[in-house]
């Protein structure tokens, strides 16, 4: 059994489809009526866990739905593991698991019955489906409650049952749409841990859509930020963190405009992030005392100063300001 699995794994490594990007967006556009929802999305997503970020209405869920084949693209297309979403939808769906954002169940069923039905619809024979349903429910932590009707589940348990149905057939790509919605901190932690475990198993890629930056930061390696249906940012979170220079966050009082202009003349990059806040990246040869000197020159008080690195929140906010596709 183990030998067979190894052979299959080695065979899959030789399959060129396995080297294709997880998701390849080729000028993907989607319109609802005349309203453009997604506009010319391009990019190759290769991460094990990809975070899909964006403000409400940015098109995150529409992108997932389009990749699942629920909405036809108005132009362009996308490939999942090298297969076209418009022509190979059924083949793609064999490889996909989907956890929807909203409550989605079949009423009057026990969890094990529900997950088994979902596995059978994915093509698993009845006995295998039952076995995998038990395993999936144990895996997500619902083992003891698996014979209870879904109608009696709490919100957290329902989220876990949705995750179980998404992974029961062992997909290679799992779309998780707001998986921590409405969860208490403990349930959220459990969900995040499960997502990370699946990611670290290396057997499935994950696309996690969320408006909670912390969830994405904890689970994902790559992020794709959408703004008004356009690709605002796609980057590797880890590399981005590493490449980000340390910067100084200053809280000032006084004539901020003259102060920042003078800093710019010194050759430092700066950004005004709030009414009294300035981010400054010091260039070589420039020291903190130079900033104090300029502040004193323009009668500006520096009330607080701290070293920081760009967080996901900064990347996100910057993307919302720029929205030009790169950082």
């Amino acid at each position: 059994m183990a030998v067979a699995a190894t052979v299959q794994e080695q065979a899959s490594l030789r399959d060129p489809a396995n080297f294709a990007p997880v998701i390849d967006l080729n000028d993907l556009s989607v319109k609802f009526g005349r309203r453009p929802i997604l506009q010319s999305l391009r990019g190759e997503l290769r991460g094990r866990a990809i975070g899909l970020l964006g403000p409400n209405g940015a098109g995150k869920t529409t992108l997932i739905h389009t990749l699942l084949g629920f909405h036809p693209p108005s132009s362009g297309t996308a490939h999942i593991f090298g297969q076209d979403i418009t022509t190979d939808a059924k083949q793609i769906r064999l490889l996909i698991g989907y956890m929807p954002e909203r409550d989605s169940f079949i009423a009057g069923m026990s969890a094990v019955h529900f997950v088994r039905l979902m596995a059978e619809l994915s093509g698993l024979p009845s006995e295998a489906a039952l076995e995998r349903a038990h395993e999936a429910l144990f895996y997500v932590g619902l083992g003891e409650a698996r014979y209870r009707s879904l109608d009696t589940y709490s919100l957290g348990m329902k989220q876990l049952a949705k995750l179980a149905q998404a992974i029961v057939h062992g997909p290679r790509l799992i779309f998780l749409d707001e998986p921590t919605n409405g969860l208490d901190p403990a349930a959220r932690q459990r969900m995040i841990r499960l997502v990370r475990e699946i990611r670290d198993s290396g057997k499935a890629n994950i696309v996690l859509s969320s408006h909670l930056l912390r969830d994405v930061e904890e689970c994902c390696e790559e992020i794709l930020i959408l703004k008004d249906g356009r690709l605002a940012v796609y980057c590797n979170l880890e590399e981005e963190r590493k490449s980000n220079r340390k910067f100084l966050l200053l809280e000032t009082r006084g004539d901020q405009e003259k102060f920042t202009t003078a800093i710019g003349e010194l050759g430092c990059d700066y950004a005004i992030t709030g009414d009294h806040r300035v981010k400054v990246v010091l260039q070589g040869g420039i020291e903190v005392r130079d900033l104090y000197r300029i502040a004193s020159q323009f009668d500006v008080q520096i009330r607080r100063m701290s070293y920081k690195r760009d967080s996901l929140e900064d990347i996100f906010l910057k993307a919302m300001e720029n929205g030009h596709g790169s950082l």
Binding site: G123, P125, E135, F138, G170, R172, S201
Partner: peptide, 21 residues
């Protein structure tokens, strides 16, 4: 994903024919 293993596992078994699903 076996109950005793508690690990994510892909399904590598046979699938039912599409027409009968």
């Amino acid at each position: 994903m076996a109950v005793y293993e508690h690990a994510y596992k892909q399904y590598l078994g046979k699938l039912t024919p599409q027409w009968s699903r």
